[in-house]
Design a protein around this nucleic acid. Structure first.
Lengths: 349, 349
DNA sequence: CTGAAAGCGCTTACAG
DNA sequence: CTGAAAGCGCTTACAG
């Protein structure tokens, strides 16, 4: 029974013994009181550090409190954000992390400055942040970066700053695939109903569209390109405008499913048959694309996967791992459903 | 200086004195241990509530953290839950409360026992809970109640226990309104595609349906009543079965919008025109009802309002206010859209 | 199931 | 500035 080296519980008293001082002195150091000689304080701090002492409160927190990651979304009304959130939640459950929801577009939300938000993240002991929103421009992320808060932006609307970690999808390739699909069906008059002009992801989709047209030697027609919001209303308005044109397009590539749904709704009202009279391709591949009438051909983004990847990045940053890359881009792929068909005969010049 | 009634620091011992028990007993109650007689526990809980006792840990948390309310949902794939969540978030933003999301149906979620969950709520300093799920039966709520955690259940699937605070909608009146609407259009053969048989809300809808039929002297036809899940698949299967019947119904009352959407999809496949050949009414009034083809006549529940009410109840419990009522039921109302029409001539006997 | 007693770990008050 | 002693508030172990 001469076991001499038992684990020695990590109490204040144990630290005191190790540092060769009394318990009250250690207590003072731990509580940041000033009436301790610099030399004594140093000895105590060394002992504390070496042993990894935690106060009972800290211990309880660590034992029971799991890391909390804040997810910032514009709204729950977009299938896009909800799908990403699903992916985040899935990985969170698997990695024993909690997710706090912060929906910026909600009524009555107090308009905190980024500076205040960032300080609060620290004060409330949050571990990191995932942002899927247009509410934070790159510049507004600066207070978070300055405080070294792990943060990941999903498919940033603005070109990401050098040091912001981001997750996105291959938008350019997706835009090209959608357009190539329509070209393959014989369409030549293909419109692009885009999202916000400033959005990086929208630009990539537009340029993919243009690249596909150019590769086929089809002239890019300015009146066929419209930007707006990623919302059904924009699809409705865009469809109305396109149907007024002297040379109607025979196909529309909408830069999001929600825009495409607006197009379908307006087509129904105006008795334009989809896909017989006109083909429509969406972007995102949310469940809305499956459930629409007709089911929507769409460029599918791996939204859940993107959510998982974002959380994985946050956790790596929390652990202090070095990241191999500050940007991950996951592959999109075209899912052909029933909203696209060969270009109608009479429309071919 | 004979001030006799000093504020008496809020210690365990003080509570013990007030409740007329010993400190260890109070300690047990606070920690949710089970070896306490129900009566003793009640006495202690009253004293705790009255005095607003907080453990040292809680006290420290409260000093610089905003209250965090945990929202428990089955899944984000149901518009129902997302709408309620929206209401919760709205009120949360206005009352400076944070919302933590716990989605039980997510892959990889660790299956914690209610006992463990409840203890974690305390340990992590959470302030309360809103539950919109079938994952917790009334019995499973017991560990939360025992710990005096403010908890509110939304439209409980099980009949709520006496002391569980709950928020619901007037399901019976809604079921009656839906059916009366169909009767008013001349329908007599009206089917009911219900949700889970055990669900309180489903039973209320069913009985509202029966009440309307009986009021009109219409025989309740057993083969027209089917229960299942609140899911589109159930609508598809139910529609298939109903179309096989010798006497097809001319109208269907689906106990949820998602069931109704399944009905619409199957109708499309089988070339049954809605509403010309058959009328369909849903329940919930989520955005899905507006966006379906044709737009769905549906009994609208004030889901956002329910979410707000739930959070309001949680906050009141947190403050220790006495509640005037442990149950709030908000009004439903029928929204007539395009999926219902007069009973087709040839179907009238 | 209850509570007197002992214990734990930290903090406070104060003599030196 | 330091630490022995007393104290605080909660928890544990266990006799009844």
């Amino acid at each position: 029974m001469a076991g001499s080296e038992r684990p020695a519980k990590l109490t204040l008293a144990a630290i005191a013994r190790e540092a060769g001082v009394s318990a009250p002195t250690v207590s003072k150091v731990v509580n940041g009181r000033e009436d301790v000689a610099a030399e004594t304080r140093a000895k105590v701090l060394t002992a504390l550090e070496r042993s990894g002492y935690k106060s009972p409160l800290q211990r309880k927190n660590i034992a029971w409190r799991r890391p909390v990651v804040e997810m910032v979304l514009d709204s729950l009304n977009s299938a896009y954000g909800v799908e990403v959130l699903n992916g985040v939640l899935e990985h969170a459950a698997a990695s024993d992390v909690e997710v706090l929801l912060n929906v910026t577009g909600v009524q009555g939300a107090s308009p905190l400055s980024p500076e205040q938000r960032a300080q609060r993240i620290i004060d409330e002991g949050r571990s990191g942040m995932i942002v899927v929103t247009s509410a934070f421009s790159s510049a507004q992320l600066e207070p978070f970066l300055r405080r070294d808060i792990p943060i990941v932006v999903i498919d940033p609307l603005n070109p990401p700053q050098g040091d912001v970690v981001s997750v996105g999808a291959s938008n350019w390739a997706g835009g090209k695939a959608a357009t190539t699909h329509l070209l393959g069906l014989g369409h030549r008059r293909i419109a692009f109903l885009g999202g916000p002009e400033a959005a990086e992801c929208n630009q990539a989709r537009l340029h993919g569209y243009m690249a596909a047209l150019m590769a086929e030697g089809v002239q890019v027609e300015d009146s066929y390109i419209m930007s707006g919001a990623f919302r059904p209303e924009h699809g409705v308005a865009g469809m109305k405008a396109l149907l007024q044109l002297e040379q109607r397009p025979t196909a529309i590539f909408a830069a999001s499913d929600s825009i495409a749904l607006g197009v379908l709704a307006e087509a129904r009202r105006q008795q334009v048959r989809i896909p017989e009279d006109m083909s429509v391709v969406g972007f995102d591949g949310t469940y809305q694309a499956e459930e629409s009438v007709p089911p929507l051909t769409s460029v599918s983004q791996p939204l859940q996967e993107m959510g998982r990847a974002a959380l994985r990045f946050v956790l790596r940053q929390m652990r202090g791992d070095t990241l191999d890359s500050r940007r991950v881009e996951l592959a999109t792929h075209l899912v052909v459903r029933e909203s696209t068909a060969p270009c109608p005969r009479e429309a071919v010049n």
